[in-house]
């Protein structure tokens, strides 16, 4: 199908973009990579009266590496994070590994990190990463800029805490020290498909014990979620197969996914167990 008519504004600055949004509210929609939005418009599931294109706004295609955090700007494409080399340490490794699983190559050359987070698909790699690391989303409007923590940002499927007049101008991620080990595992029927279940982990090890553990899951709820049950199992124990199996079981016992076309709920629970264990094993470089 073809999209319905819309007015098109190619913004030349953030000020211009937010002033259009401030005037039009939810009649307007921001477009960056458009890899989800244009498909929805082609189906007429989305019919924005005005499209505010931010692709020509200077300064948004920036990866800003600070002392302890990284700001990923609204025009940073998936492919750039996948190719890596800009974000140091384990965070850079995790961005490259997860980025490789976002859609297919021609989607990754155009789609953006921030756009994926603003779209809030609970099976999106970047949304799970944002939940894993307690990312802070930088929302800009004519009223100013605020930072929204991940646990408040993801409201439900395709719904975020962004107000209609706000643009997600950047996502702030904490840099991970070299003591952190990161792992990622997802299951999909074919490479490049949306994952049915994914798990992402970041564990900090000191003196042979896990001192900090983060486990996040995608595809099991209406938003990406942390598994506090798995994290509680991990902290204080020595990393290894038994610890990881126990954490995977704890994660599986504490999710209540719905069944769908891919399989019944029990199938997803089993996948949670497998993906958590796999991502933990990969984090320690054994998978």
């Amino acid at each position: 199908m073809k999209p319905a008519s819309f007015d098109y504004v190619s913004a030349s600055s953030i000020d211009q973009a937010v002033s259009v949004l401030s005037e039009l509210g939810d009649e307007a929609k921001v477009i960056a990579g458009g890899q989800s939005l244009v498909a929805m418009m082609n189906f007429r599931l989305a019919r924005p009266a005005t499209l505010v294109d931010i692709n020509r706004v200077p300064g948004l295609d920036v990866i800003d590496v600070g002392a302890d955090s990284v700001a990923v700007g609204a025009l940073v494409r998936h492919r750039r994070l996948e190719l890596g080399g800009e974000v140091p340490g384990p965070l850079g490794d995790l961005l490259a590994e997860a980025g490789h699983h976002v859609g297919h190559l021609p989607i990754r050359t155009r789609g953006t990190f921030c756009g994926s987070i603003a779209h809030a698909d609970p099976a999106s790699e970047w949304c799970v990463l944002a939940a894993l690391l307690d990312a802070r989303m930088e929302a800009t409007s004519t009223r100013g800029t605020r930072l929204i923590p991940a646990e408040e940002f993801f409201v439900t499927v395709f719904t975020t805490a962004l107000e209609p007049d706000e643009i997600l101008t950047a996502v702030h991620l904490p840099l991970l020290s070299e003591n952190h080990h990161v792992g990622f595992a997802e299951f999909s029927r074919r490479a490049g498909d949306f994952a049915i279940v994914m798990a992402m982990t970041a564990i900090e090890v000191a003196d042979g014990r896990i001192t900090d553990a983060r486990v996040a899951l995608g595809g099991v709820a209406a938003q990406p979620t942390r598994s506090s049950a798995a994290e509680a199992v991990l902290v204080g124990r020595a990393p290894g197969a038994e610890t990881f199996a126990d954490a995977a079981s704890a994660a599986a016992e504490n999710v209540t996914p719905h069944g769908d076309v891919h399989g019944p709920a029990e199938y997803r629970v089993d996948l949670v167990r497998a993906m958590v264990r796999r991502s933990l094993t990969r984090a320690l470089g054994e998978g």
Binding site: M1, K2, Y8, S10, I31, G34, Q35, V38, A39, N42, F43, L51, D53, N55, R79, H104, L105, P106, I107, T109, R110
Partner: peptide, 29 residues
Amino acid sequence: CEQGVCGACTVLIDGDPVRSCLMFAVQAE
């Protein structure tokens, strides 16, 4: 498919393969 799945419409834009059904011509200025 006109929804970015099949890739039949893939073209190169500034050297990168892109789905031309998921981009408006005005954006390609």
